[in-house]
């Protein structure tokens, strides 16, 4: 069953003013449970606006959003409960930390859910371990941590709510390569252990290609395509026309093809590319 579904979803900023702008235009999409979806699209393509609809932070101008089979906004009193099913990590989430200790900050979401103390304690410790925060850090002030640590605390704060769908808006931006790998690695591990649905917005085609099972491409407020990485990166020309790139390794292989070296499959990860080349070399 689709865990997130939209029907003719549209959102317009500043309706009725000269600044009217269509941010999301008639989007119909179904995201299956357990999927790891990479969301790409250039700045202003509407991807951030779209994901804010998935947990009811924005109310669609027209159209419907279904989470886990239930329609958001149909019954406003249920909205908060549905919101707990979809965890949203904003860009630069470390700026939302506010509690005295890391422990309390991670516990903020679960406390709002009205869970028992033992359950909250279990979740806090578990997610802290999952994002690689040592137990000694839990009693520290979040403002004393390093940038990468703060980011992980903020992500843990959302993970601790154990949402069915976890949405992350550029979780690795502004971090050094090591920090990036760490964050993306923990998201992948989280996906592996929980099998929950993940939506990952990223500007890095490499990251998206490496981790996702499906890719959602947004362009000009519309969904350009929603398909497997292989099929999406197959349309390299179209992607480049809309100002997006394909992974570097795909470009390398496309050049090889252009030079007359026949390679049947679309390559979008380095590992797969290496395997393919090695097999080919062995054959020759």
């Amino acid at each position: 069953m689709a865990v997130i579904k939209t029907e003719n979803l549209s959102y317009v900023y500043g309706e009725g003013t000269p600044f009217r702008k269509i941010a999301v235009d008639n989007v119909n999409i179904e995201i299956e449970e357990g999927e790891f979806v990479g969301v790409i699209g250039h700045t202003g393509s509407g991807k951030s606006t779209l994901i804010q609809h998935f947990n009811g932070l924005l109310r669609p101008t027209s159209g419907k959003v279904f989470v886990d089979g239930e329609e958001l906004w149909k019954d406003k009193s249920k909205l908060r409960a549905l919101r707990f099913k979809v965890g949203l990590v904003f860009q630069y989430p470390e700026y939302q930390l506010f509690e005295e200790t890391v422990y309390k900050d991670i516990a903020f979401g679960p406390t709002n859910m009205g869970l028992s103390r033992d359950e909250i304690d279990r979740r806090v410790r578990e997610t802290a371990r999952m994002v690689g925060l040592s137990p000694s850090l839990l009693e520290k002030s979040p403002f004393d941590l390093s940038g990468g640590q703060k980011r992980r605390v903020a992500i843990a704060g959302v993970m601790a709510m154990e949402p069915k769908v976890l949405i992350l808006d550029e979780p690795a931006s502004g971090l050094d390569p090591k920090g990036r790998e760490q964050i993306l690695g923990l998201i992948r591990d989280y996906h592996k252990t929980t099998r929950n649905t993940i939506l990952l917005i990223s500007h890095s085609m490499e990251d998206v290609a490496k981790h996702s099972s499906k890719i959602l491409v947004m362009n000009n407020a519309q969904v350009f395509c929603y398909d497997t990485p292989q099929r999406v990166f197959h349309r390299a020309n179209e992607l480049e026309q809309m100002g997006l790139a394909v992974p570097q390794i795909t470009r390398v292989f496309n050049r090889l093809k252009a030079r007359g070296i026949s390679i049947d499959e679309d390559v979008y990860t380095v590992d797969f590319g290496r395997k393919l080349l090695l097999e080919r070399l062995k054959k020759e």
């Binding site: 932070l57 919101r83 506010f98 903020f108 709002n112 859910m113």
Partner: peptide
């Protein structure tokens, strides 16, 4: 505000005291 709402902060319902307290997670950051 959006980020805290996504974490389940409730800023729209409750008594004045409750709503004032709900602003703490917004004001500190």
């Amino acid at each position: 505000m959006s980020a805290q709402k996504a974490r389940g902060a409730d800023m729209e319902t409750g008594s004045i005291v409750k709503r004032a307290r709900a602003l703490v997670p917004v004001l500190i950051p």
